[in-house]
Simulated assay, not measured.
Amino acid sequence: MKFAPLLVLPLIAACSGPGPIVPETKVEKQMIGLLEKFDRYDLNGDGELDSGELVAAQKSTGHPPSEIIDFYDRDKSRTISLREAQRGFKRLDEAEQRADHTH
């Protein structure tokens, strides 16, 4: 039983993780908000966000649904899947540049 504490330590370390993501910019906050609220915005539950469902996002971001879709929609379906939203977050620098040019 002397080794029991040694076994617990890796489990605690594995569960701690990096902690919550804290947005540093307005754009980053908006992108995280889309990910956090994806299921809430997906009114019909099809796993995709269309322009009608993104009206609520426009209120919080100031960007019309067409701009949001243009940024995230990589397969040109005119909707945003959760995977596309997640991948879009990896393009934060591009989103920041677009925001700088529109304001």
Rank of each mutant, 00 (worst) to 15 (best):
P65D: 00
L54D: 01
A57H: 11
A14N: 10
K26T: 09
R40W: 09
E84K: 03
K76E: 13
H63A: 07
S66W: 02
E84V: 09
L35H: 03
P18I: 00
E24F: 05
A95W: 11
E48I: 11
P10M: 10
E36L: 13
S51P: 05
E48M: 12
D42Y: 07
S51M: 10
R40S: 11
G17M: 09
P5A: 08
Y72L: 02
S66L: 04
K26G: 03
P65L: 00
P65I: 01
I12W: 13
F71A: 00
A14H: 10
P20G: 00
L11S: 10
G19V: 09
A57G: 10
K76N: 12
E36Y: 10
E53N: 05
I68C: 00
Q86L: 12
L34I: 10
E67S: 01
G19E: 08
K2C: 14
P5S: 10
E84D: 10
P5N: 12
G33I: 06
A85Q: 07
I21C: 01
K2G: 15
R98T: 09
E24T: 13
G45K: 00
E84M: 05
L43S: 11
A85R: 06
L9A: 15
K2Y: 14
L54M: 07
D46R: 04
L6S: 13
F89G: 09
D100Y: 13
Q30S: 11
E53Q: 12
L92C: 11
T61H: 04
S81K: 09
G52E: 09
L7M: 15
A56R: 09
P65T: 00
